[in-house]
Design a protein around this nucleic acid. Structure first.
Length: 632
RNA sequence: GGCUCCGUAGUUCAAUGGAUAGAACAAAAGUUUCCUAAACUUUAGAUACAGGUUCGAUUCCUGUCGGAGCUACCA
């Protein structure tokens, strides 16, 4: 309708206004909530272009539109707004269309180019935490939304399974893990610990011992024991004395940090970890075995977590396979003149013409840096998946700059697909106590959190749910989807780009703008439909109440919402939509009788409407990765 | 220092440059002879500050103040 009116105005513009109007002037939008009407045409843009008063214009357009469109029941001219009321007949027809469309809101599958969505991207030295959960839910949901928009999508993760941090937990396990009666060190089997938790424990253990050792070194330095004293340390201590006498507290803290860093570099633990990394790179059999064993534990642990939250990947990439990639591309780029070499042999790209800095792409010793690898992996992925038309990287916004640089480099190297790559950048998750810091132990563990929300859901559902006759298996599935649904919805309803606050109490709330609230409405509709023995049938003409029109109006917006969510890569758009739909349905449910309605036509229509609300709830929540129950 | 992002009710979040800035939570008051009260209905409460562009600004521009991030031959 919106489109038809626009076309009409454009085609008839000479007749109506006496002159041509450009497309941008015709602005039609949904009528604001507390104003009566369905569509609103803005008159302001014409006022300026045509030098006519809004009233005058409004009346003229009102008559023309009413004569042209049968679906228009009434038009109000209110200030600069022309509010169009559409007829019951029109809305009934719209509902019928929603009803008949089995994949309502979705575009034809595989009608759009192949995309890759990368998300999760864990390290194998630590278990997953709350920040990963936002990342994972977001990436998964965006992949689903893109599919709904007709794209073919490959879901992928890149696992950071190598590097000094991995060696740290390996070393700590070798050094500090106690031996059991059989002379074995701790394993997931003999401790019952989840593999990722066990490895994470030793990463922490490394850090603890390493700090102790660094502290001892500093104490020795302070005592004047100079055996490991370098000139640099001596210089820092001199500065420290100066700062102390000058009482410059800011400088003092800086110098102390610097000394700490120097001490850390002197520790045998770090030295040994570095040595281990060198051995790993040389494929030392013993180190390699330890590495594959411990990583294996971690993957088993991750799989448990992934399974519990219902996400999966079509392909996993491992940094141990990809960390050498990209060097040949750099050489290529050097020849093409995209990069340049400095005197020490390091390779750079000059991005100052794009308002950025110069950026290192290869170290002076010829080894790769992070971005080298990223260039290599991106190119590699296009080889793995012919026809790939873009990669979406779900990575925190602290890497905004990195991705800006990466995409620019790819573009400069002449890869045409670089323009289709995008960084799905999301904000940090803060706790009420402030930032999550692994060092301070304020990280919220993913498994713990999931267990907690499910437990809470169990408790609440036992209290007020309708569980009669359900098997234990069904019950535990229900508790699971309520708890998880609440958590997912809580993390997804906020605009991904924005930093958000995670309030543990709110995340398990059941009232208000929450997952369970939406799930509840779905369950209630299912119950209603089963009591009515509902089956789909054609609708007869009838007069609609405002409450009914409101709901149908929202239903018809679903396809647009999916498109918008896809363009913005934002599940939040969908979450806000489904919440609005549910609110307006609940209002209807509370005000208008359904089962006890005596007019069969009306009753049938209300049931049909309810069924389609349930359908859209199911569909949109699925795009968020949230299951909805039929009873709760 | 340079660059980027963010400042909306007590709190957490909404609002393609459009009407009286929406919700939720918390607070106060109500609604079960009726379809699941995990619901619904009321009440009270906000655009950091100062300019500018515009018929019209929470939205765009400039400045101030406040917060966060990036600015590694780390990943």
């Amino acid at each position: 309708m919106e489109y038809a009116i626009k076309e009409f105005l454009l085609h008839q513009s000479t007749l109506l206004f006496g002159t041509n109007v450009s497309e941008g002037l015709v602005q039609i939008q949904r009528t604001k909530k507390d104003v009566s009407g369905d569509l609103t045409l803005l008159l302001f843009p014409f006022v300026k272009a045509l030098k006519a008063s809004p009233q005058e214009l409004g009346e003229k357009l009102k008559n023309a539109l009413q004569a042209e469109f049968k679906g228009i029941q009434q038009i109000d001219v209110l200030g600069g707004f022309l509010n169009i009321h559409l007829s019951s007949h029109y809305w009934l027809h719209a509902l019928e269309q929603v009803q008949q469309d089995r994949t309502f809101g979705f575009q034809e599958a595989d009608s759009k180019p192949l995309l890759m969505v990368e998300y999760a991207s864990p390290n194998t030295n630590k278990p997953l935490h709350l920040g990963h959960l936002r990342n994972i839910f977001l990436g998964y949901s965006v992949a689903e939304i893109l599919k709904a928009n007709g794209h073919k999508v490959i879901k992928t993760q890149i696992i950071n399974d190598r590097g000094i941090h991995i060696c740290k937990s390996m070393l700590a396990w070798e050094r500090f893990s106690p031996l059991d009666a059989k002379g074995e060190r701790e394993t997931p089997q003999n401790t019952g610990l989840k593999g990722d938790k066990l490895v994470g424990k030793y990463y922490v253990e490394f850090d603890r011992n390493f700090n102790v050792e660094a502290k001892e070194i500093i104490e020795n330095w302070e005592l004047g024991k100079f055996d490991t004293y370098s000139e640099e340390v001596a210089a820092e201590f001199n500065r420290l004395t100066e700062a102390k006498t000058g009482k410059d507290e800011k400088a003092l803290a800086g110098i102390e940090d610097k000394i700490k860093d120097l001490a850390k570099n002197q520790t045998t633990l770090l030295r040994d970890a570095k040595e281990m990394l060198v051995k790993w790179e040389a494929r030392d059999p013993q180190v390699y075995l330890l590495w594959t064993t411990m990583n294996g534990w971690v993957y088993e642990g991750f799989d448990v977590t992934y399974k519990s939250i219902g996400v999966d990947f079509d392909k996993s990439y491992y940094e141990s396979d990809t960390f050498l990639l990209g060097k040949d591309i750099v050489v290529d780029g050097l020849n093409k003149g995209v990069f340049y070499k400095k005197q020490d042999g390091s390779v750079w790209i000059d991005l100052t013409d794009c308002g950025l800095d110069e950026k290192l792409v290869l170290r002076s010793d010829g080894t790769a840096v992070y971005i080298t690898q990223d260039i290599g992996t991106a190119v590699d992925r296009y080889k793995d998946f012919p026809g790939l038309n873009g990669i979406i990287y779900t990575v925190g916004n602290e890497q905004d700059y990195h991705f800006k640089v990466l995409f620019l480099i790819l573009e400069k190297l002449g890869y045409s697909w670089a323009v289709n790559c995008s960084h799905l950048s999301y904000g940090m998750v803060d706790l009420p106590s402030g930032k999550m810091k692994s060092r301070e132990g304020t990280v919220v563990d993913a498994d713990d959190l999931i267990a907690e929300v499910v437990e809470k859901a169990t408790e609440m559902t036992r209290e007020r749910g309708h569980l009669e006759g359900m098997t234990d298996e069904n019950k535990s599935h229900l508790f699971n989807i309520i708890g998880l649904g609440g958590l997912k919805y809580y993390l997804l309803k906020v605009d991904p780009k924005k930093r958000m606050l995670f309030n543990p109490e709110e995340s398990i709330e059941l009232n208000g703008n929450t997952g369970p609230f939406i799930q509840y409405t779905h369950a209630r509709i299912c119950s209603l439909l089963s009591k009515a023995n509902y089956f789909q049938q054609n609708l007869s003409d009838c007069e609609l109440l405002d409450e009914e029109k409101e709901v149908i109006k929202l239903l018809t917006e679903y396809p647009t919402v999916i498109r918008e969510a896809g363009m913005a890569l934002s599940p939040a758009v969908l979450a806000n939509y489904v919440y609005e739909l549910v609110k307006s349905y609940n209002h209807f449910y509370q005000t208008v009788p359904i089962l006890i309605e005596t007019d069969e036509n009306l009753k049938a229509m209300r049931l049909a409407m309810s069924a389609n609300v349930a359908k859209v709830i199911r569909s949109s929540m699925k795009l968020l990765g949230v299951e909805v129950p039929e009873r709760m």
